[in-house]
Design a protein around this nucleic acid. Structure first.
Length: 680
DNA sequence: CTTACCTTTGT
DNA sequence: CAAAGGTAA
């Protein structure tokens, strides 16, 4: 197109030069100005955690370095508002168009839509691209043209689409730099002094940036991939791809991963290597889950906050800070869980299996609200990813149509012997148990006194007794479930009677928002939780507020004192937040919440999607040629509403025809829970 | 060795 | 629930 002005390429989570459609389009159009805007406050609760910021910092430096070798550099802006920063850059450079690649998390969807509106209204051409997915969410539909609601059907369709995913683009040969002489870049600060020490350790294990991402990919494909099916159950993982943080920041494109892996698969299939082929399928499934997480986020943009199955709204979560803290510190008394939580804290990384173990323990045994756990993952994982994590926690919590059954509790003791049969994993992360024989390593509470003594263990002193017994947890879960159904029925009845108010209006909860306890302050070295005395336990009938744990760089002054979970020492970590930010936004959101919640239609209205077609041929989607360059820009349909209103209206809204509950009325009854997960 | 029955697992 | 894997007879 018009070779005249230069283009701004707005980098976000696509920190690579290869197979970067926005960059490629910019290069094709002429001169390019590469921009990264750091506006973390825009993320609200999801201000990136320490390790995540560390990664970003390295990755940006790496990107800048390589852009320089192509003939330009990365302009960085510190901002409270991405869109106005972009405008600023436009003004100082005279750029004519802005190019970026799509993101699908709820915050980005809203922000990018606004960006597009504002910039377009200023006469700037805005074009956006698919760089993060094999297929755009709106491309994958069932035979009735509706979005899938279960993973398997979604993924089957993806693998049998009439056209293949786009092949990866080569990196540009050279990038002509736009004139940035009048553009004032900001230096970005990603860590404070208290974080530097801990971050230094990360560099030993990880190397962010697209070239390491490429290396990791090749290593994986030529190494562990073939054995993936065999090994993927081992907690000790030299066998995973280790690609997730790279993928999160877009340092390598999924399409490249997909294509290279597929090539191997064909090769192995020809050799008749069954195991290899199987391994590829399994690995691709995890790529598929990543795709699906974007798909779900796009179709249900509130899924990081609300269960997708409505009745879960009535589950009486246990709001217990002691539990929460014990879990974070790896002091639950279940070695596999504790080892996982210590590894997570120490390294920012967890094998997928162990993520399942600790999160399912969190939800099913402790019955803490899943969003707390998700938030903690967000704050501590190197590959923290809103879409993937939301999907994962919803799956574990049984709040998806195809998630695990709600009433199923996995026993960490048995899982221990499955995933860590020799106890090596536990011994590595729980030094206090290192001398315990394998026979007892996953259930020390059963070990004879003499064995414990020989191993130097005093249960309740240097290693806790189980914080909750599995049997007690089962009983409590059953009770909670029947309460949930009661509440749900009551709410439905209330709605039918027109007594609106609806949900769980009963006695104990004030305005429907559970504030994180402020009155309880936690002493650091309290006695480890005991087995039996039922802890002070409150139940609440609403989704929980997420405790605000992220340490914003602007809040460093708070809680200066002694303990701070940001520091690296394991003992002083994970201080329970004493303050919860109850924003007005969320409050109104909860208040306005509608009646029995369903899986609703996407608010995204594909027909409202706008075509910014310089590429002329906007063909219909099922033909072989897809839009790529200058393709579809996703757009929020009713744009007048505020962020929170959009969520609310989505929930209340819509789609009589395809509301999940309407198609599956039986999901109101627990006995049909099982069948529910089949249908759809 | 087969079969009926069980437990486990799965996005 | 269905598929897979394991066990007892």
């Amino acid at each position: 197109m018009s070779g005249g002005g230069c283009s701004i390429v707005w980098f976000r989570r696509d920190l690579r030069v290869e197979d970067n459609p926005a960059l490629a389009a910019g290069v094709r159009a002429g001169a390019v100005i590469a921009v990264f805007v750091w506006a973390p406050e825009e993320e609200g609760h999801y201000y990136p955690g320490r390790v995540s910021r560390w990664w970003l910092k390295q990755s940006l430096a790496h990107l800048d370095f390589s852009l320089r070798s192509f003939g330009t550099s990365l302009i960085t802006k510190r901002s409270a508002d991405s869109v106005s920063s972009l405008l600023e850059v436009v003004k100082s450079t005279g750029a004519k168009q802005i190019l970026f690649n799509h993101l699908y998390d709820p915050l980005s969807l809203v922000r990018d839509h606004r960006a597009k509106e504002v910039l377009t209204s200023q006469g700037i051409v805005v074009r956006s691209f698919n760089a993060d997915l094999l297929y755009e969410p709106w491309e994958v539909n069932d035979d009735q043209g509706r979005p899938f609601t279960t993973f398997t059907s979604f993924w089957e369709r993806c693998l049998s689409m009439p056209y293949d995913p786009e092949s990866p683009l080569l990196p540009p040969k050279r990038i002509i730099s736009g004139d940035v002489s009048r553009c004032r870049p900001d230096t970005l600060v990603f860590e404070d002094d208290s974080e530097k020490g801990s971050n230094a350790l990360l560099a030993r294990a990880w190397s962010p940036g697209w070239s390491s991402a490429d290396k990791a990919l090749t290593n994986f494909i030529n190494g562990p991939l073939i054995e993936y099916a065999k090994n993927h159950k081992k907690a000790d993982s030299a066998t995973t791809s280790l690609l997730s943080p790279h993928l999160h920041f877009g340092e390598v494109s999924v399409r490249k991963v997909f294509h290279l892996v597929r090539i191997k698969q064909v090769l192995w299939a020809n050799e008749g290597n069954k195991a290899g082929e199987e391994s590829v399928n399994l690995f691709l499934k995890s790529i598929g889950l990543r795709e699906y997480s974007r798909y779900m986020s796009f179709n249900h943009p509130y899924s990081h906050e609300r269960p997708l199955l409505g009745h879960l709204k009535f589950f009486p979560w246990v709001v217990n800070e002691d539990y929460f803290k014990a879990w974070r510190q790896g002091r639950t008394g279940y070695p596999l869980v504790d080892a996982g939580m210590r590894e997570l804290w120490a390294t920012g990384w967890l094998h997928d299996r162990i993520r399942v173990v600790v999160s399912s323990f969190f939800v099913k045994v402790l019955q803490l609200p899943w969003r707390w756990g998700m938030k903690y993952f967000w704050d501590t994982l190197l590959d923290a990813d809103l879409e993937s994590d939301a999907l994962g926690w919803q799956y574990i919590s049984g709040t998806l149509p195809d998630g695990r059954e709600f009433d199923r509790i996995d026993n960490p003791q048995f899982e221990g012997y499955k995933f860590d049969p020799h106890g090596e994993y536990v011994r590595r992360w729980l030094p206090e148990l290192s001398r315990l024989p394998t026979e007892w390593i996953h259930h020390p509470w059963n070990a004879p006194e003499s064995v414990l003594q020989a191993a130097g263990i005093e249960l309740g002193l240097n290693y806790p007794l189980p914080i909750v017994g599995i049997d007690a947890a089962k009983a409590r879960l059953e009770e909670a479930l029947s309460e949930m159904w009661e509440q749900e029925a009551a709410s439905r009845a209330a709605i039918e009677n027109g007594t609106e108010e609806g949900l769980g209006d009963s006695s104990d909860n004030n305005d429907g928002v559970i504030a994180f306890p402020q009155d309880i302050q936690m002493e650091e070295n309290r006695e480890p939780p005991r087995n039996n005395p039922p802890p002070p336990t409150t139940r609440h009938y609403e989704d929980q507020m997420v405790p605000s744990m992220t340490t914003s760089l602007f809040r460093v002054d708070e809680e200066e004192s002694s303990v701070d979970f940001r520091t690296s020492a394991v003992d002083s970590r994970a201080e329970v937040p004493t303050n919860v930010v109850v924003t007005q936004e969320r409050r109104s959101e909860v208040l306005n919440r509608g009646p029995v919640q369903t899986i609703t239609q996407p608010q995204y209205n594909p027909t409202a999607m706008q075509y910014v077609a310089e590429d002329s041929t906007a063909e219909s989607s099922s033909t072989t040629r897809r839009e790529r360059d200058g393709g579809v820009v996703p757009v929020w349909s009713p744009s007048a509403t505020s962020y929170s209103e959009q969520f609310v209206s989505e929930e209340n809204g819509i789609g009589a025809s395809s509301s999940y509950l309407q198609r599956h009325p039986q999901s109101h009854q627990i006995i049909n829970w099982r069948r529910l997960s089949q249908t759809g």
